[in-house]
Design a protein around this nucleic acid. Structure first.
Lengths: 172, 172
DNA sequence: CGTATACCATTGATAAAGTCAACAGATTTT
DNA sequence: AAAATCTGTTGACTTTATCAATGGTATACG
């Protein structure tokens, strides 16, 4: 119904500018701006669309990328502590508390006191947590596939390697 | 359960590990986790550290990456409307209102009614806004330089190109 | 023509996320 | 043993995100 024709943005033939390119129209007319060359802006936008999509996909499991990330790390055999989760996920320790609370309430993870340092608690996934993770992983996988669809396997490798270097710069 | 094995958990100064470089220990023990291979996670973390640093740098001008981005686009000669800013920056239109309000209050940008479509307002930078942008750009530049320090010029080009493709996927 | 529909900027309400200080228990340092 | 540091936790508070509703404007359609 009523195809909204986007009303020819700003480049409407202004008598004089007739020969100009015929409106790249899209919402991406601004790609010509200087900002669009800044890697940090592109990173921010990429993550926005990516995690946005992932959140939608995860909704059917009542998860968000945040809780998914915690669950994922809990499923690793690395026995992360909450502090490590906070550092790794760039979150405040208090936010981890809430996320673990929720996952624990759902029976997906457990807090077990670390024998070596009784201050910290290691987060581990329950069998049920692992089942949940499997499903979530599949959804995220599909979502990511959708987001990175245009990139070849090799290009993804490049991108991953580059991002890893800026995401985990040594202390400074 | 009772996984007391797990090789070398956290500290445990096992006599033999002494010769190794004193534990890469860092908060990045978890890089071995599956999550660390997901591009979207890396993207999220990269933008977190990046915009975090940029925000700190911009504080001396009383700007944030958000307001800086708006200002930057206002300084382009593209005459963006608020709607376009919202789309481009992945923000809600109502957030743009607040950001433009602030910049306008500071005399950095103006809202001028679009002659072609009186619903929309084009955001343009004042001379003072351009001066402010110049300073901000320098700060962001330095900050970004600090974040991407390890990447060669060529690698930055690759990264930029790859990010652009996933940040601006056509509609879907 | 006029009316219905869609759009833009704006406001306001509400939820989610981020930031910070303080605190108890545990560990390390001195 | 005392001081200093760390971990998880709570709570207050700010910022950001999300969504519905509205007035003014433009387009579509009959």
């Amino acid at each position: 119904m009523a195809v909204q024709k986007t009303a020819e943005p700003r480049s409407a033939r202004t008598t004089e500018a007739a020969e100009a390119e015929e409106a790249a129209a899209g919402p991406e007319r601004l790609m010509a701006a200087e900002l669009a060359d800044e890697i940090e802006f592109l990173t921010a936008r990429a993550r926005s669309v990516g995690s946005g999509r992932a959140n939608i996909a995860l909704k059917e499991l009542d998860l968000k990328v945040r809780s998914y990330s915690v669950l994922s790390l809990a499923c690793s055999d690395l026995n992360p502590s909450q502090r490590e989760l906070a550092d790794f996920l760039s979150l405040d320790p208090s936010q981890i508390v809430a996320l673990v609370d929720e996952l624990e309430r759902r029976g997906a993870v457990t807090r077990e006191a670390d024998a070596r340092d009784r201050r910290s608690k290691v987060i581990a996934a329950t069998p049920e947590g692992r089942r949940l993770y499997k499903q979530a992983f599949a959804l995220v996988r599909t979502s990511e596939e959708h987001s990175l669809g245009e990139l070849s396997h090799e290009e993804r490798g490049q991108l991953r390697a580059l991002l890893r270097r800026i995401a985990f710069k040594s202390a400074d």
